[in-house]
């Protein structure tokens, strides 16, 4: 049942709420995540080790590929900064790629144009059928498609979208023999020990199979087109690319990120919710997540940033509460979802 985010009891140090899985509060109102009883946090030494290993991977990269990296570029602040890091700090030859999910803010699109022009890089926008995306979002919203474990740190719709981004980026990397795929995730958004890893599609595909089967039963064979990779393409490359989240190696606040990307022409969109800087479906995604689980999918990420002193608790609360109703209503109408659908999905 939908919870009023303003009324839920929250940890006094971070913003994890009483509805978050396995949460407990001590006598001072501090949660067991802040008290380090749960969730391995990434130590600075671990980040330092990953930094060295990522730099070594970049140094040892093959020179024969047309591109060093595919950068998954949403137009939001984090992926914009990741793109800047890839080009300017790591001197990589990049191909940036945007998935147009049909709900990207027009301001974000302008940002993408300005940033790729300023950085002088090649760019591809891929837009799957709007009908398919709407059907995918509808099913992800009202059916229980994903492992609840996955949904502790991401909404079902964001997970659907990011799955297409990941698969499309992997296809492009395999087709062009590109050794790296870069994304703009921060620690907190992704598990702490996945700053970089080598893809292993076959094994992960096996674990994804129940999810794909559920989606196919609802959406048909288009699911394969957008969320699977053919054997012939998999056999084309001897080595799978590494996925690397460069932003996890940086000790930088949100304001500092914005300061760094403003000179590229980036402008903060006003038509998105407080937790997004590019996507107009996000407020709805958060609403659905709240309806199903009683907490925001951003609680874990924002709480991590608070613990790392990269965001204040007040800033995090402000983002969490900034969920414009008009954006939620717009998406509900687009996806033809009403309160009854959401109630039945619980």
């Amino acid at each position: 049942m939908y919870q009023d985010l303003h009324l839920i009891k929250r940890c006094k140090k971070c913003i994890l709420s009483a509805n978050f899985p396995r949460i407990k509060f001590d006598e001072n109102g501090i949660c067991n995540f802040c008290n380090n009883e749960l969730l391995y946090t990434t130590e600075n030494s671990e980040i330092e080790t990953s930094r060295g290993e990522v730099e070594k991977l970049f140094q040892d990269k093959s020179k024969k590929s047309e591109y060093d990296a595919i950068v998954c570029y949403s137009g939001g602040k984090d992926s914009t900064y990741t793109l800047k890091l890839a080009v300017e700090k790591y001197k990589l030859k990049v191909l940036s790629f945007t998935l147009d999910n049909g709900f990207i803010s027009p301001v974000a699109f302008k940002n993408i144009e300005k940033v790729v022009s300023a950085l002088g890089i090649d760019h591809i926008t891929y837009r799957p059928s709007y009908q398919f995306m709407k059907s995918l979002y509808r099913i992800s919203s009202i059916e229980n498609i994903y492992n609840p474990k996955t949904l502790t740190r991401i909404s079902a719709n964001c997970n659907s979208c990011i799955s297409i981004v990941n698969i499309t980026a992997l296809k492009m990397a395999l087709e062009k023999d590109v050794p790296f795929i870069l994304a703009g995730f921060t620690l907190g958004q992704i598990p702490s020990n996945t700053i970089y890893y080598q893809n292993n599609y076959e094994f992960l595909e096996e674990s994804r199979k129940p999810i794909l089967d559920k989606l196919k039963s609802q959406l048909g064979n288009d699911v394969s087109k957008y969320l699977e990779i053919t054997d012939s393409l998999l056999k084309k490359s001897e080595n799978y690319p590494y996925n690397i989240n460069l932003l996890c190696l940086e000790d930088i606040t949100e304001n500092e990120i914005i300061e760094k990307i403003l000179p590229l022409g980036w402008v903060k969109p006003a038509d998105v919710d407080g937790c997004s800087t590019n996507c107009k479906i996000n407020a709805f995604n958060n609403y659905v997540h709240n309806y199903k689980f009683g907490y925001s999918p951003y609680e874990l990420e924002l709480s991590h940033l608070i613990r790392k002193n990269l965001l204040t608790r007040e800033e995090a609360i402000s983002k969490l509460f900034d969920q414009p109703q008009d954006q939620i209503d717009f998406v509900k109408a687009e996806l033809r979802i009403d309160e009854k659908d959401l109630k039945m999905s619980n």
């Binding site: 671990e46 492992n147 598990p191 020990n193 890893y197 674990s207």
Partner: peptide, 20 residues
């Protein structure tokens, strides 16, 4: 995975744990 303890990303996390 079948018992819902981890998702596919969890396999990557366990690999990282082993390496570390």
């Amino acid at each position: 995975i079948d018992t819902g303890i981890i998702d596919s990303m969890g396999l990557i996390e366990i690999s990282s744990y082993i390496k570390k």
